[in-house]
Design a protein around this nucleic acid. Structure first.
Lengths: 223, 223
DNA sequence: CACAACATACCGACTGTATTGTATGTATGT
DNA sequence: ACATACATACAATACAGTCGGTATGTTGTG
């Protein structure tokens, strides 16, 4: 009701508003605990609009995962980490970029599809598959640079670019969990620091010139 | 009703059975999607028993996290990875142990408290805190061996034992997410492989003697 | 270009059921 | 006699999804 549609330029964007609401609310409360009414209220639309655009709540979950894949693809494609000529520099710049965007409230930097995967992996295959497509699709964009760097530097040490690309995503997802457990994004950045150190090590580089993220405990961290 | 209590030796274990049911069902369906009836049915007890032992569903969540902390503590304390005299060997043996227990169905090897943290971090602080206590409590048991190894080998390279201990948990949690996304535990083991390579690198060791887990794609893995 | 015919986007009350929690009763050990 | 450990029926509400509507644009036709 707040800002509806009648005679207004933003007509027809109820679907987009619902997807944006899903992106944010589900990251805060999870998929199962988010009700259709929650989403309608957050998007400022009615139930009628919801079920006009999405057949079921599960269908919205799939659409939200697809929306996430599209918007994050655009974000990463437009990011500056592709600039370096050296593929290894691009990989390191990617990690720096990932660390840099871990900031603000938890629901702003965590991963929608990682969150949904945890919840629905066994009960809603359609959503799980859409999430997997997003995660591994993104990993694949990394794989090219990693493989180029690996070949260029003639590294052959028992790991593949595909596997390392996946590992970067695992580290990020795991960092988000620790950050959620404490309410402290530093814990996610800290794992990216370790990951960067690992990648440098794999390619025989020295440690990073500066130690940048001294973990300052902010919230309820355990002994 | 199936195997209740009357006049039977397993009298009084409804609480334990509910906690075991919670451990398994919540890992499959998530906390919010698991109903009290689900738990009662899975445990073979009635609603009356449930609310006799737990004031609310949230209270069961807290108790399940505590139960998880206790049982996993016992598991890890009794595990053979403590045997080596060299603290670094103990750390590496820990990682090997973690890799070894990633097997079977998803709900058998994934982490209850990591799963619950994702869902409730923003809405049910009591459960989140109980989960955080379990995660960081376990990390702390690792920290001692890592720090001992670090001091013994005189490593001072900008990382702390505390931070590396946390990172191991992040890698495991992230590996579980990738495994859930694909239904393939190999992806979790693969990240442990990378983590082990990282730890060896930090301590100046060569790569592991044998490459043990060639990731064989089993399920719906993306391009 | 007027206008009917249709399609799309949305509204909001309503329904049936699922779900948490309660209230009361009963058996059993101490 | 009393507390503990359950069982069963029930209440109150929350939830996903439905249904009949309206408003607005779009398209085809004379």
């Amino acid at each position: 009701m707040p800002r509806p549609t009648k005679q207004s330029p933003e007509r027809g964007d109820a679907r987009t508003r619902l997807l944006e609401a899903a992106r944010d609310v589900i990251r805060q409360k999870g998929f199962a605990a988010t009700t259709v009414d929650d989403l309608c209220q957050s998007a400022g639309v009615t139930k009628g609009a919801f079920f006009h655009h999405f057949k079921t709540k599960d269908a919205l979950g799939v659409a939200a995962a697809d929306f996430w894949a599209e918007t994050t693809s655009a974000l990463f494609e437009g990011a500056p980490y592709h600039e370096p000529d050296d593929p290894l520099d691009r990989v390191l710049a990617y990690l720096e970029f990932r660390r840099a965007i871990i900031d603000g409230e938890t629901f702003e930097y965590t991963c929608l599809v990682g969150t949904m995967t945890q919840e629905v992996h066994d009960s809603i295959p359609a959503i799980r598959d859409a999430c997997a497509k997003s995660i591994f699709g993104h990993a694949a964009t990394l794989e090219a640079d990693i493989e180029a760097a690996r070949l260029q530097r003639r590294i052959d040490a028992g790991w593949t670019a595909e596997s390392l690309a996946r590992h970067t995503q695992a580290v990020l997802q795991g960092g988000f969990i620790l950050a959620k457990a404490t309410g402290n994004p530093d814990l996610a950045r800290e794992s990216v620091d370790h990951l960067e150190r690992y990648v440098r090590g794999l390619f025989g580089l020295d440690a990073a010139p500066d130690t940048r993220n001294p973990t300052k405990e902010k919230t309820n961290d355990q002994p």
